[in-house]
Design a protein around this nucleic acid. Structure first.
Length: 453
RNA sequence: UCCAGAGUAGCUCAAUGGUAGAGCGUCCGGCUGUUAACCGGAAUGUUGCAGGUUCGAGCCCUGCCUCUGGAGCCA
């Protein structure tokens, strides 16, 4: 029976007979015996295998090169040398698959740019193995966070006919050939359809029935965005709460980020240590800071004043009514507050129609959670629950109410104050691992001009 | 899409307009309870693509492609 290497290395006593299966990371030969470093992806560390010449199967040793796969039976013993607690003394080895000299992963470090060109092999490297283990655990932690709080997981549709206004360009989904705009009624769904840019509007309908819900699924944006923090396909988390206002929304967003940072520190320590070593020296300090310290909350108008009085020269102007630029957000979190910051109550003109108008008649209940290094990681709002006001907002944004009849029905029948937010899972991973490029936190990145693998 | 930078050996990078190199990896040999082992030797190139200038282009010019960083859009 196979034992995963993570369990082998966690042993508390020697074991007479164990079997490991994995891929050779490196081999060092000595006179009369060899050292094999075997990794099976179950953890960052390799198990050191000692193979004496004459061991059954050792005639294949020459082919057990970096990248080859092998099954090894052996005895787990305390290692006499520095560097590892346990080592496996092989009693039998089996070469499963060879890897010749063209195997592109060397024992030495590679750039992330090169590894992106071999995305099918990069999970066999230390950094990406760690990344995708952490990604899995944090996806689980997302569900755990919401399930513990009685949120219901909702699968909103991936194909949709409605545009979550303001979220970005959409990919068209069609079975038509030729000119697809000529007769859209002849298309598969009888109308133009797209890949979803957000499950929010559908999510609201379920919150207005099941009270607290969340979505966690793939999302698509056809924007021609070429940055380290944009992808055409990404995973988004969107909670929505009935009988909840902006305060409650900000509470949940901040609590969520803290909970995931805490989870990463507690459950991904070995992998986090690797990120700290190679990509972000201050990673653990930053995560502890996020867990322990309260987030700063600042109204948009006050944020504008802080920027104006900073005495700093910005490339883009700071003026009430203008969007905060990346440089402004970075200044706030990285230099001024030196912590994550939640900016709320934005001018209505720069935010979408569904956000609730405040009593001042000028601002809406929007909130963005900004984090150092990445910028916006959460964007959310309390929704406009008043039917008349919603219609007026639509008019202001030049939207046709009939396109949103079902969305408006939520305000027509038993309307309630409700709020929610969207959070990009990949941006969360960037923040929690310190890996600076979104292409390196998703298994196979889809970006403009690139859908390889 | 805009601005800037870069494409040379499998990888990371050198190379005044004048014979294309190094380190690592690979292969061969040696040595050693080794740890990104060590020592010696060898092989490895359509210099991103297409044109142009020149006696001569990796280097200069034009166009294109790709990648990287930044910006916009946003999560």
């Amino acid at each position: 029976m196979r034992t995963l290497i993570k369990h082998i290395l966690a042993a508390t006593e020697p074991k007479e007979a164990v079997t490991v299966k994995g891929w050779v990371r490196t081999r060092r030969d000595s006179k009369g015996f060899s050292f094999l470093e075997l990794n099976d992806g179950s953890c960052l560390a390799n198990v050191q295998v000692v193979v004496d010449s004459g061991t059954p199967g050792s005639e294949h040793l020459a082919h057990l090169t970096t990248g080859a796969s092998a099954v090894i039976d052996g005895k787990l013993v305390a290692s006499p040398a520095q560097g590892q607690k346990w080592e496996l003394r092989a009693t039998r080895l089996e070469l499963v698959g060879t890897a010749d000299a063209t195997y592109p992963l060397q024992k030495k470090g590679h750039t992330q740019e090169f590894l992106r060109t071999i995305a099918h092999l990069r999970p066999r490297s230390n950094l990406y193995g760690a990344m995708f283990r952490v990604r899995s655990r944090l996806a689980f932690a997302v569900h755990q966070f919401f399930q513990e709080r009685d949120f219901v997981y909702v699968h909103t549709p991936i194909i949709t006919a409605s545009d979550c206004e303001g979220a970005g360009e959409m990919f068209r989904v069609t079975t038509l050939k030729g000119n697809i705009d000529e007769k859209p009624q002849a298309d598969f769904f009888g109308k133009p359809t797209y890949l979803t840019v957000s499950g929010q509007l559908e999510g609201e309908t379920f919150a207005c029935a099941l009270s607290n819900i969340y979505t966690f699924g793939p999302t698509f944006r056809a924007e021609n965005s070429n940055t380290a923090r944009h992808a055409a396909e990404f995973w988004m988390i969107e909670p929505e709460m009935a009988f909840c206002d902006l305060q409650g929304d900000m509470d949940l967003g901040e609590e969520f980020l803290k909970a995931l940072a805490r989870y990463a520190l507690e459950h991904c320590a070995e992998d986090l240590a690797l990120f700290a070593k190679f990509v972000d020296k201050g990673l653990q300090e930053r995560l502890k800071f996020v867990v322990e310290r309260p987030f700063v909350r600042v109204p948009y108008s006050e944020a504008v004043e802080i920027l104006k009085q900073s005495g700093k020269q910005f490339e883009f102007p700071v003026e009430y009514g203008l969007n905060l630029q990346s440089e402004h957000e970075r200044f706030l979190t990285e230099e001024h507050f030196k912590s994550p910051a939640t900016v709320f109550n934005y001018p209505r003109e720069i935010k979408p129609f569904y956000m609730r108008l405040n009593d001042d008649g000028k601002t809406v209940t929007a909130m963005d959670v900004l984090v150092p290094g990445i910028g916006e990681v959460i964007g959310g709002a309390q929704r406009e629950e008043r039917l008349e006001q919603l219609h007026e907002n639509m008019k202001l944004h030049k939207l046709k109410p009939e396109d949103y009849w079902w969305y408006a029905d939520l305000r027509r029948y038993g309307t309630v104050p409700h709020a929610g937010f969207g959070l990009g899972f990949e941006r969360l991973l960037m923040f929690l691992t310190g890996v600076p490029n979104i292409r390196d936190v998703i298994p196979f990145a889809r970006t403009p001009g690139s859908a390889d693998f």
